[in-house]
Simulated scan of single mutants.
Amino acid sequence: MKAIWTFSLIIFYLLGWSGTAKAGELSQRLANFPQWEQLTSVQRAEGDLVYPDWFAGSWEVTSTLVDLVAPLAPDIVTPGFESNRQQLNQPVSFLVRFIPQKPPITGLKLIPKIDRSSILVADRAFNSLNLARAYLGDEAVLSTKVDPDSPNRQITLLRGDSEALRRNRQLISIVTGRAIETSSNNNFITSEVFQQLFKGGSRPYFNAVESTTAYNKLAKSNPAILADQVTAVYLSPQDPDYFTAASRPVALYRYRLEFSPTPLD
């Protein structure tokens, strides 16, 4: 459960954006870490992720947990939080890629100043599978699937433990809201909120997660892209501590992401 929890916190940082935030709202939110009191303002998630052109191609991503905070401890601490300290300052690397896709006609209105025959999106299944196996191991992750009818719904199938070999575990994640903020051609910030359901344990486990990430394209260097990411965990109404936590996050994780270009066959 602890390893799965670690994975569930980071699996969606490549899942995209739509909707525009007020100027400076997301950058200020990152600057205010760890003083977060509630979910950020987002719009309903529609359509697929659209990345700037400079994300095109294949990358080796190195993700490093650089800070973690439990704002409501010791009264409320999420499962796996203490064990996640072992990940602090330990880089984890995996491959990702971004591919062109023809945009839906109705989706163009969601993407400011986009008018071209294709848009750039993440290869969702490939990226998430590589990320999951980097954290959990090849044997622990059976598959990752994206709903063909909705890029905002993803299911990751995990191998059951020795006491539950007859049933595999599932992590179901549904993106419900997103926002973006751009300050220049080389910088953009995304925030998305998603609901998570973990099935396969003694009982289903629900939560809500917000991931806010600032990407910066570097000039002629390696890594070529740096990102500052904060992932916040909020309790779901099914949790007995939900009303005690109110709107406040119960766990905050800060990551440094480094993107280095790499060829893939």
Score class of each variant (00 low, 15 high):
141 V>C: 09
244 T>E: 10
11 I>H: 07
129 L>N: 05
136 L>I: 05
56 A>H: 12
65 L>S: 07
142 L>V: 10
167 R>Q: 12
120 L>E: 07
188 F>E: 01
60 E>W: 11
228 D>S: 10
188 F>M: 07
50 V>C: 02
114 I>H: 10
248 R>W: 05
21 A>K: 01
165 L>P: 05
42 V>K: 03
83 S>N: 07
43 Q>Y: 11
66 V>D: 07
88 L>M: 11
195 Q>N: 12
78 T>A: 02
127 N>T: 02
21 A>S: 09
191 S>K: 02
142 L>S: 07
60 E>N: 12
62 T>K: 12
113 K>L: 03
238 Q>C: 09
159 R>L: 03
79 P>A: 06
4 I>V: 05
218 L>M: 13
207 N>A: 09
44 R>D: 02
90 Q>G: 11
241 D>Y: 08
173 S>V: 07
227 A>E: 14
43 Q>M: 06
129 L>G: 00
214 A>Q: 14
24 G>K: 01
82 E>R: 06
90 Q>D: 04
257 L>C: 06
172 I>Y: 15
88 L>P: 10
195 Q>F: 09
122 A>V: 09
111 I>S: 02
181 E>P: 01
47 G>M: 04
130 N>M: 11
161 D>W: 08
155 I>Y: 09
32 N>F: 00
67 D>Y: 00
139 E>K: 10
169 R>A: 10
56 A>G: 08
63 S>P: 12
83 S>G: 05
82 E>V: 06
127 N>V: 02
70 A>L: 10
218 L>R: 12
57 G>Y: 04
5 W>G: 03
78 T>F: 09
111 I>M: 09
246 A>S: 14
198 F>S: 08
101 Q>G: 06
90 Q>L: 14
42 V>I: 13
199 K>I: 13
47 G>C: 01
154 Q>D: 14
170 Q>I: 02
134 A>V: 12
75 D>N: 13
216 N>F: 08
78 T>S: 12
153 R>P: 00
186 N>P: 03
101 Q>L: 01
127 N>Q: 03
178 R>V: 02
82 E>D: 11
208 A>K: 03
57 G>L: 07
48 D>S: 08
223 P>V: 10
234 Y>V: 01
150 S>W: 05
69 V>Y: 06
102 K>V: 10
48 D>V: 07
185 N>S: 15
2 K>D: 15
140 A>C: 11
202 S>T: 10
29 R>T: 11
240 P>T: 08
81 F>G: 04
47 G>P: 02
118 S>T: 15
17 W>R: 07
89 N>R: 08
263 P>L: 07
77 V>E: 11
236 S>Q: 10
58 S>F: 05
93 S>I: 05
143 S>C: 11
61 V>H: 04
238 Q>N: 12
177 G>I: 03
162 S>P: 00
143 S>E: 15
33 F>L: 15
14 L>F: 06
178 R>W: 06
127 N>I: 13
131 L>F: 12
